[in-house]
Design a protein around this nucleic acid. Structure first.
Lengths: 354, 354
DNA sequence: CCAGTCCGTGAAATCGTTTTCAGGACCTTA
DNA sequence: TAAGGTCCTGAAAACGATTTCACGGACTGG
């Protein structure tokens, strides 16, 4: 039977009223030095810790942030949650974490659960930020929230993200500059998510600007087993004039694609160049290192918490915060034999800071 | 201003008392069909959702599980948390997630925070399960908890884990059977954690059983940058009679080591074989695939939740649940030239189920 | 020296539920 | 018809904190 020591116990021990104990603990009103000392002593002796529940019931606000993400298994989301957790901890808050596991309809249910817990605010990564009944509900009930990874077209929705279209545009241009003409576009299971669409748009725009034909995106199961990927890629890369490069919509997929291509007997990057998106840590640990767009995922989580607190405490208006991305060169991306100009390994193209 | 519709609003709308509303919602007592229908209608119309806080204050128990892990950045922990989340969701519970970020002393503080939130129970991965004041405190206050990844020597502490020593023992024996005689032991920053110790014990035991000299463990920064790893490994592998294999205490480290060895000009596995521990998904996606001990991390999270609920609801006694591991062969581990017997790629040695 | 402030404190209301207790309506049985 | 059960239902008391209100005592200033 936990919680036998309540504020009342402390009050008795210190010889004062519970109101005074509350005041001492929260410094919510001045108290005399004598009573202050007695209360603190009692708190220490009894090991008293005020119940967050009692507190929350009165104030109708917990020190808790609700989080909804698709899955923890993707290091991208894991990293943003890590950032949120650390930023929340700095502010004496904890995270109520839920994941949809890509189950449609789960978003609404999870948000409801979190709202029932009186969270101070929400941080979400949703499938589609444009048309989303759940977000409409939050807007209507005036519950503060911030999106992460999503790029809401709807202004008035707070979000922290990178410019996915610009990033893929830049990455694609780099590949084109390295001499690639046929660049396959391989998409993960996010094909329906808003950010996946934005990424694809960037690719298309860059190809068209260069007067090249954008390829039809090939959808692959995100981190499906390598054999299945090899099979799916065989048709494309064993055709007459195969692509010399593959742009993958995320890093997990890219790593798997590198493995699959090798299984098929292609050398990376000699026969086929590969690039990913996200900048997960592992991409730099494998050999050859993965060329990718480095996005500050952990920082995104931190910034999301900061923005959420600004909205809650200072009534800041919701805004979209674009974080800078970096093109990270890597061993998997090399110039073609007939490259117009060799890509310098040292170059790092960074988006202009917001 | 959220939460304007309380149980009282519903009662008014349905024309009954709040007690009856509560009874209908929780089916805690029989109610007439008429009133039942009216209440349900009112609930639906008003979009009422009972406040978990009000409920918790009365029952002194939330539908929340507290989680403490070292870091979300390690996919091993991310995977177990994913398992916990899914198992908790099945039981209408949510996760209050915290991470120590390897900061000493954070464990105690985080547990205190979680207890103040009246969590129904706790799931922890701690640095040392043997001597741990925080766990003693939980024992004393009779707050149910389950350890994950830890192997508590202290009986009476609930835990879900694999037999780390047996697993490393088996892995080391496999490497020895492949002909390796000098097998380096590379440890991550977990060097001080109890499971890292158990893993090292298994390695030592296998080496000694085979009449071989165990190497002094080389400590590397877990996922430090590849160059620093290359530097650290240079001395060991460029010596007179270098090891022909490296056993790494976890997969992230192993992947990085593979990269570092290649940077140094070694071929993997031709010159040096490498094996890891954990069985993270990415190990199977890279090329060559990583030889490792596959541990059911996600399942561990699920089982931990199941065990915790058994303890909470059925008063089950705390117990240690050992989950089976699997030796996963991979391209990074090959026989030496003078191997006693070639390792068959198809073999999978599995620990006996518990 | 008195009136007016200010400061520290306690009593009590409140937050949204669950749960106990008691009572009224209805039915059964003698 | 009266006695005794069942069933439902409502009033009210918790749960553990915060916060408003009022009050007594000690200042301050004229």
């Amino acid at each position: 039977m936990p919680r036998i020591v309540t504020i009342r116990t402390v009050a008795e021990r210190a010889g004062c009223s519970i109101a005074t104990v509350s005041r001492v603990i929260n410094r919510s009103a001045p108290t005399s030095a004598a009573v202050d000392a007695r209360v603190r002593a009692a708190v220490a002796e009894l090991g008293f810790r005020p119940s967050e529940i009692g507190r929350a019931l009165k104030t109708l606000r917990t020190r808790t942030l609700g989080v909804v993400i698709p899955s923890l298994t993707n290091p991208v989301f894991a990293a943003s949650v890590a950032g949120m957790q650390s930023a929340a901890r700095e502010r004496q808050h904890t995270l109520l974490l839920t994941a949809t596991d890509y189950e449609p309809g789960a978003e609404a249910e999870l948000v409801e659960t979190l709202v029932a817990q009186n969270v101070a605010g929400l941080i979400l990564t949703v499938a589609d930020a444009a048309e989303n009944a759940t977000l409409d509900l939050l807007d209507a009930e005036d519950i503060p929230y911030v999106l992460v990874h999503n790029e809401p077209p709807h202004p008035g929705r707070a979000a922290v993200c990178v410019d996915n279209a610009a990033a893929t545009f830049a990455l694609t241009e780099t590949m084109i500059a390295a001499g690639h003409r046929r660049i396959a576009y391989l998409a993960g299971r996010f094909a329906t998510s808003d950010r996946a669409r934005r990424r694809h748009e960037g690719y298309r725009a860059a190809m068209e600007k260069a007067g090249l034909e954008p390829e039809v995106p090939l959808e692959l199961d995100y981190l499906g087993d390598a054999p299945s990927h090899a099979e799916a890629l065989a048709g494309l890369f064993r055709a007459g004039a195969p692509p010399t490069a593959a742009l993958c919509s995320n890093d997990l997929l890219a790593l798997s694609v590198v493995g699959a291509l090798r299984t098929l007997g292609f050398r990376v990057p000699d026969d086929v160049s590969v690039a990913g998106f996200d900048g997960i840590a592992l991409g730099g640990a494998v050999h050859p290192t993965l060329a990718t767009v480095d996005t500050p995922t952990r920082l995104m989580g931190e910034r999301a918490v900061a923005l959420l607190f600004a909205m809650i405490n200072e009534g800041a208006a919701p805004r979209v915060e674009h974080l800078p991305f970096t093109l990270r060169p890597g061993g998997t991306l090399a110039p073609t034999a007939r490259a117009d100009q060799p890509a310098s390994q040292g170059d790092r193209i960074t988006s202009s800071p917001p």
